[in-house]
Nucleic acid binder design. Structure first.
Length: 210
DNA sequence: GCGACAG
DNA sequence: ATCTTGTCGC
């Protein structure tokens, strides 16, 4: 698995490589027993209105091991993505991007494999350090002396979130795009709506006792 | 050897 | 991530 991550890291690009952002998507996963529910929400980049949603339910086939999240959620994410009729110009993933010990977080892995621009949005730091940002501000997340992402304080009441390039996007642009997706909550709409979506599906599954 | 550790 | 009620603060 480390060999695979080394290949991913060798293919990552942190250069902006995409045209005008019209459609942006967010993905997230929920768990129920031995199954994983993965959902994608496609949004209009300017209005943050929902355009389309898609999801898949799979059997969990890998445990949660820090730095190896890709091997647990990667396939379901790709499958949910492929179910979308319209494809996003950029994807925001719940997890790390290049802010990973081996520069191969879930967002980066998905970006390289699907060859699409991605941004990683995490609620906790996996590696690196950063000063606590003031409301609305972002401080660089440093690792071994290099910047690998940002610690962004999106509002007064919430703990800061971690923003980092996944693939085909720069350090500055990933922060700019993330900020444009904020609507007063801790998380950008992409990630927030994807999270609500998978929990909505999970709730329905429980009600139907499936 | 000990502690940290995305979801 | 998940379990799980009330409760403190803006």
């Amino acid at each position: 698995m480390r060999g695979i991550q080394a290949e991913i890291a060798a293919s990552v690009s942190t250069e902006d490589d995409f045209g005008n952002l019209k459609k942006i998507a967010g993905v997230d996963c929920a768990f129920l027993g031995d199954r994983i529910i993965c959902g994608v929400v496609l949004l209009d980049y300017d209005t943050m209105d929902v355009i389309e949603r898609a999801c898949v339910v799979r059997e969990i086939d890998f445990p949660y091991i820090p730095t190896y999240l890709t091997f647990r959620e990667g396939k379901p994410v790709v499958e949910a993505l492929s179910k979308l009729k319209r494809k996003p110009d950029l994807l925001m993933v719940d997890g790390c991007g290049i802010n990973h010990p081996r520069k191969a977080g879930l967002a980066t892995h998905i970006g390289v494999v699907m060859d699409m621009p991605t941004i990683g949005i995490a609620k906790k730091i996996l590696c690196g350090e950063a000063e606590k940002p003031d409301v609305g501000e972002a401080n660089p997340l440093l690792y071994h002396g290099d910047q690998i992402g940002w610690l962004l304080k999106t509002n007064k009441r919430s703990n800061p979130i971690v923003v980092a390039p996944g693939h085909r996007i720069s350090m500055d642009t990933c922060l700019e795009v993330t900020r444009k997706c904020l609507r007063g909550y801790k998380l950008p709409e992409t990630t927030r709506l994807a999270h609500m979506y998978v929990n909505e599906i999970k709730r329905e599954m429980l009600e139907n006792k499936l």
